[in-house]
Design a protein around this nucleic acid. Structure first.
Length: 470
DNA sequence: CTAGGGTTAG
């Protein structure tokens, strides 16, 4: 009955019913709990709290109750909590099954917790659930999100059965890693094996072309999508095309496309247009894009920062200040940069400008030493990117370091030479960090994987897989 | 007695 209410989204009724059941003296079991959980997952925090209460009250939580709690956590940014729940449920003597695993794996991928992900992979092998299509697909995605695209491929190849989602997961993985050639190969292979692509396959194909700078090929696939496959382009596809043209410096062409698209452009269209205007110093179109974005997403600080950067790169300080004033009047601050790194099964979070990490003095010392080495080899800081940070709140950030540098330094300090590092960041990597990490990869002989909001950067022997194009 | 909880892009 409760499940019925929940299904029809009468969440309030299902919670009331749950309460009545209690007062009538019925003890809820795992089934009724898993039915009522989605009703409170409108807010994960609330659901987690309720769940812990149920557990304390000694209610019979079953595999489904635990699984749905894990799913709510990994779908709502509570990745560490999801991992913790997985551990707890096993301590309670419950055995995760082939549904629990694909609920949990995205949590490992989200925070690039490779060791945790590998442990879950081992668990699914030992418990004979690794042949499940959902499990296999979730593994492909997890390894791709942890920077190990070769392992994604190995999982894919070993799957006894695959579906559209499995193909898309691999295709998307290659796209995110900027492996354009491999992505297009997979796209062809999937069709040869009889799997029709869908609109998600095309977002990956287009974004792979964009990452690899294959402008003409991207235009070809975009046209072919509706012509040969009968898939009408959606906002996401136009968004990829704007990035593709913008990256190639063809800003006017990108803007023309935006004006001619059949649906109303939103932030996912104007955003990439503004970014490419920042990269290619196009003030006129940048101002148009920014004005639209200020209407569509007035509280997104990134847009103000981008426009002000365009002004700053042209030394238009009056305009820089007026944008900063707009931000201030809305009470907006630049999103704090934040990075994660997993070291010996523990995930560390580093914030630009905070002193919370106990090893911060060592980190600062290490980065100072690296700066000296870099200067010896002729490196100059990227002033273009320092211009971003002229406002007072950001001066601290200039004095200390961006979070991705802190995370890399922490990794260097706590692992032995030759051990690869991987960092994930909540914003896009800046030019200075990119240059510093390239240097570190050579000087310290480390492979370093950095996942930013856009793609993966694989630093090795002083070069990056993105070919300095991002 | 069973169902229920599931994977991909942006």
């Amino acid at each position: 009955m409760i499940a019925g209410f929940n299904h029809s989204r009468h969440f309030k009724d299902s919670i009331l019913m749950f309460r009545d059941m209690h007062s009538e003296g019925f003890k809820p079991d795992g089934t009724s709990i898993s039915s009522v959980l989605p009703a409170v997952t409108g807010c994960v925090e609330g659901a987690l709290k309720r769940f812990k209460q149920f557990k304390r009250q000694g209610l019979n939580l079953n595999v489904v109750s635990w699984t749905s709690m894990i799913a709510s956590c990994s779908q709502n940014g509570k990745d560490m909590e999801a991992l913790e729940l997985f551990r707890e449920m096993q301590m309670e003597g419950l055995k995760p099954n082939s549904v629990t695993i694909p609920c949990l794996l995205p949590a490992c991928g989200n925070i690039a917790a490779l060791m945790h992900g590998k442990a879950v992979h081992c668990f699914s092998l030992k418990n004979w659930v690794s042949n499940d299509v959902y499990v296999g697909t979730a593994l492909i995605d997890m390894y791709a999100n942890c920077g190990r695209i070769q392992l994604s491929r190995r999982c894919f190849d070993s799957m006894p059965r695959r579906n559209l989602v499995s193909w898309n997961a691999l295709l998307g993985g290659y796209a995110m890693h900027g492996k354009t050639k491999e992505a297009l190969e997979v796209f062809n292979l999937m069709q040869k094996s009889g799997q029709e692509p869908d609109f998600i396959s095309f977002t990956s194909v287009l974004s792979a072309c964009s990452q690899g700078g294959l402008t003409e090929e991207g235009k070809f696939y975009f046209d072919s999508m509706s012509k040969d496959y009968g898939i009408e382009p959606r906002l996401e596809h136009y968004s990829c095309m704007v990035s593709l043209l913008g990256r190639a410096g063809r800003i006017v062409e990108a803007y023309t496309m935006v004006k001619q698209m059949p649906m109303e452009p939103d932030g996912c269209i104007w955003g990439p247009l503004l970014s490419s205007c920042r990269v290619h110093h196009n003030l006129a179109i940048g101002e148009i894009a920014a004005r639209k974005l200020f209407e569509l997403e007035p509280n997104n600080p990134g847009n103000y920062v981008l426009l002000s950067n365009i002004y700053a790169s042209k030394s238009m300080w009056v305009e820089v200040n007026s944008v900063r004033e707009m931000m201030k009047s809305k009470g907006l601050r630049k999103n704090p940069g934040c990075s994660w790194i997993e070291i010996k099964n523990k995930v560390h979070m580093l914030l630009a400008g905070d002193n919370l990490h106990p090893q911060m003095p060592e980190i600062t010392k290490k980065l100072g030493e690296l700066r000296v080495e870099m200067q010896k080899s002729g490196y100059l800081p990227h002033t273009d990117f320092v211009l971003q940070d002229v406002e007072e709140q950001d001066k601290e950030e200039m004095l200390c370091d961006h979070s991705e540098k802190l995370a890399v330094a922490l990794g260097l300090l706590n692992t032995s030479r030759g051990f690869p590092l991987q960092v994930i960041k909540n914003l896009r990597i800046c030019g200075d960090c990119h240059a510093v990490i390239k240097f570190i990869s050579e000087f310290e002989d480390r492979e370093i994987f950095v996942r930013d909001t856009n793609r993966f950067h694989h630093f090795k022997d002083g070069a990056c897989s993105c070919g300095d194009l991002w």
